[in-house]
Design a protein around this nucleic acid. Structure first.
Length: 728
RNA sequence: GCUGCUGUAGCUCAGUCGGUAGAGCACCUCCUUGGUAAGGAGGAGGUCCUGGGUUCAAGUCCCAGCAGCAGCUCCA
């Protein structure tokens, strides 16, 4: 006999090895009907799962109301989709087909690539399979048998997975449905009828096991829900995200543009977008002053040797704009080094080609005798000599980071402990050669400006300074209505060799970070392997108002660059000490941050950020003069204002302003001219009625001074339709 | 960088079987002078992404490149 404990604390007796569905049936016929999967001692299992022979076991029957059941059903839907594809296409190799947030996918290798035109046929085939109502049947097999089955099915990825990923599994399971059988841990729903509504979403490439060196597969994304209504709601959410797309809104609202003539990934700020950015920068600058940061300015390029020292150049060789050498000859030599770096040249071949290159350009050279070789005999020795010589050549790099420049400012004089912490701040523009496939609107660009600062402090000051940076980031995010965030603590992966600096130093840095975060009661998750190469970091991951996560601000602790650049200060003891550096950027980059803000606000910026704050709208041309007077007074009160004096009807002008997401409209007609009033129309609340102009100005000024973030207007910028309500 | 898709007016898009380029919005001019989400008429606007090829003829078919989109991989 077996004792089953139910979630309400009651228990029931069952015969040995009873199936979970018998438990559901015993509780009640309605539950038995609604049951999809179960949780047995905290583990999600299918309804055909056999309970133990005896003892006590916790069982919870899950229905469509439980999120875990949705995941299981989606995974079953993935099997149905794979089965449908195999029925329609020949020679399909199955890879993995897991559930993901919002749906599921299945990776295939198909001789003839799948296209979106195939979606209707696949969906129709899925429906046929669902209508067949064949159960998902679990088959447990020992490893040898499993291998045999997959080999029999000629499923090479499954075979590989059994031999590698499942190498330590003595037995494994398959799920069979009709003619379709797939290696799968499960569980599944019993009947495909549970798949109420589904839709194929997109098709994309994906590497086998996520490794770019492996074969590229086709990934079919889809989603499924228990009901059609839930699916429709989900599709509406996807539409909503599309509507907020900062690339679309940026174009419609004339915030930024990217010109092919300037180059991919190089954003141009249009006047309206530049205004938003300027306001944000003013805001940050005021905070910097309040927090005793010192503004500095540094150039956009720097000597390559500096980035050799910092480690950025060698470490990020592939994602930088190539360095420029003053001597054109060096471009060729640099190419050789690049090939060497990629291990496409041996040392000997490199030395030979190097001499050839020099000979062609320098008649002082006699064949095979680079004057610098001196006593160097072996290729390795010669390579070393060439490398040293090459590294001394004058070359510049577009700066990929601001820190080396700020370090030079630190080093411009002898520092005393009395000067620390020294906080150097700059809106620093940096350039990184992101690969074409990574570029995306403002959120991934090749040139961007960080709201950067570097804090140089003593060991003792770390906790306070680090906490100060965290606090400032929180303050800034909260001011912008981005109150929903978590912190990701990026730690070093002890198994990897990509990091610089010793284990003890890392240990110390990571501990300080974690201590401060727990002291500030921050919601953080440590993530090994996510550190920068020079130190651990705290990244702010912000959730926007429709639930998407964005990585924005960052605070990073760094013991390594101070060592590499031999930074020092005179301590109280009159001895030299090494400072610690903190890199931090509360917004991250202006480009990315504003891109995210556009999506968060759906283009409807709070008054203090709005590029145009007020539009003066005349009822007819008769009131143009009064309208111009009002416009002047608003401008005198430092409001950003534009007058609309077109010979259009009032409704049309309001509609235009509304679609441009202007926060306030001041409607003026003969009545207003007579009484020195304006009729205020709010973007969100509509007509507020007439009020004296001075009063209207006060109202707006107060909203600006508070940097008030009001509920986002859910209107559609440039799209048809009237606003239906407010959000979040 | 890889896989797939896309590229036509300022914007959003249509363009059939290969036969001299189309709509709506925006823009300009005129009429209308009005009180809270589209008044009317007319006009102007094109390197059909670029370069090759096939063809009597290419926006349309083929090849290459560039750019964008989705995803993968990467992200100091």
């Amino acid at each position: 006999m077996l004792k089953v404990i139910l979630p309400d604390g009651n228990s029931k007796e069952f015969p040995s090895s009873a199936a979970v569905k018998e438990v559901a049936a015993a509780i009640g016929p309605r539950l038995a009907k609604a049951a999809l999967v179960a949780e047995v001692d905290g583990k999600i299992v299918g309804l055909d799962y056999r309970l133990p022979e005896s003892g006590e076991v916790q069982v919870k029957i899950l229905t469509a109301k439980d999120p875990a059941a949705l995941g299981v059903m989606r995974h079953s839907a993935a099997h149905v989709m794979a089965r449908a594809v195999m029925r329609l296409k020949k020679g399909v190799q199955l890879a993995f087909g897991p559930t993901v947030e919002g749906g599921f996918y299945y990776d295939f290798e198909v001789p003839e690539p799948l296209r979106e035109e195939d979606f209707p046929a696949i969906e129709a085939e899925m429906q046929k399979i669902i209508d067949l109502d064949e159960p998902f049947e679990r088959i447990e097999t020992p490893r040898a048998k499993a291998l045999e089955i997959c080999q029999g099915l000629a499923q090479k990825y499954k075979v590989e997975h059994i031999n590698t990923g499942l190498a330590d599994h003595a037995s494994m399971s398959f799920y069979r449905q009709g003619e379709f059988i797939d290696l799968c841990r499960g569980p599944h729903v019993l009947s495909p009828k549970a798949i109420g509504a589904y839709k194929l979403l997109s098709i994309a490439g994906a590497y086998w096991k996520g490794d770019a060196n492996n074969a590229q597969l086709q990934r079919l994304y889809a989603t499924a829900f228990f009901t059609k209504e839930e699916l429709d709601e989900h599709l509406k959410k996807i539409e909503e995200a599309k509507r907020r797309d900062h690339r679309t809104l940026g174009k419609q609202l004339q915030l930024f543009t990217i010109s092919q003539d300037v180059g991919p990934g190089l954003a141009l700020w249009l006047p309206k977008g530049a205004m938003i950015r300027a306001q944000l920068e003013e805001f940050i600058k005021a905070e910097l002053t309040r927090r005793a940061y010192l503004p500095v300015y540094t150039p956009h390029i720097g000597r390559i040797q500096m980035y050799q020292t910092s480690g950025h150049f060698p470490y990020y060789m592939d994602s930088q704009f190539p360095p420029f050498y003053l001597d054109p000859l060096m471009q060729s030599v640099q190419q050789l080094f690049y090939l060497l770096f990629q291990e496409k040249l041996s040392a000997g071949k490199f030395v030979g080609m190097f001499e050839e290159t020099l000979k062609r350009n320098d008649d002082r050279l006699v064949p095979n005798s680079f004057p610098g070789f001196g006593t160097a005999k072996t290729d390795e020795d010669k390579l070393h000599v060439i490398r040293e010589w090459f590294n001394e050549q004058e070359a510049y790099l577009l700066k990929p980071m601001n820190c080396p420049h700020h370090i030079q400012i630190y080093k411009s004089e002898r520092r005393s402990y009395r000067e620390l912490p020294l906080r150097l701040a700059e809106f620093g523009s940096v350039y990184r050669f992101e690969k074409t496939g990574q570029l995306n609107g403002l959120t991934r660009v090749r040139g961007f400006t960080q709201d950067d600062a570097h804090l140089f402090c003593t060991d003792d000051q770390i906790p306070a300074e680090f906490a100060g940076c965290i606090e400032m980031t929180q303050f800034v995010l909260n001011c912008l209505g981005l109150e929903n965030y978590r912190v990701r603590l990026g730690f070093r992966d002890p198994a990897s060799d990509k990091y610089v600096g010793g284990a003890d130093v890392w240990e110390r840095a990571q501990n300080s970070l974690e201590e401060v975060c727990s002291r500030l009661k921050i919601d953080y998750t440590p993530e090994p392997g996510e550190a920068a190469f020079y130190g651990p970091k705290a990244d702010f991951v912000v959730t926007d108002c429709i639930g998407r996560e964005w990585q924005l601000g960052t605070v990073q602790l760094d013991y390594n660059l101070p060592a590499r650049f031999k930074l020092e200060y005179v301590g109280q003891d009159n001895h030299m000490h090494q400072p610690v550096m903190i890199h931090r950027a509360p917004l991250g980059s202006m480009e990315r941050f504003i891109g995210v803000l556009i999506e968060h606000f759906a283009g409807a910026f709070p008054l203090w950020l709005a590029p145009e704050q007020v539009r003066v709208i005349t009822v007819s041309e008769k009131s143009e003069q009064y309208g111009r007077d009002v416009e002047q007074k608003l401008r005198a009160a430092s409001l950003r204002v534009k007058g609309d004096y077109r010979p259009e009807k009032l409704g049309a002008k309001i509609r235009d302003a509304q679609l441009e997401l202007i926060p306030y409209m001041f409607v003026v007609g003969p009545r207003d001219a007579e009484s020195a009033t304006v009729s205020v129309r709010d973007r969100i609340d509509g007509d507020l009625g007439a009020m004296p102009l001075d009063q209207a100005i006060c109202r707006l000024s107060a909203e600006i001074a508070d940097r008030r973030v009001r509920k986002t207007y859910s209107g559609t910028a440039g799209l048809e339709g009237k606003a239906t309500g407010n959000e979040y």
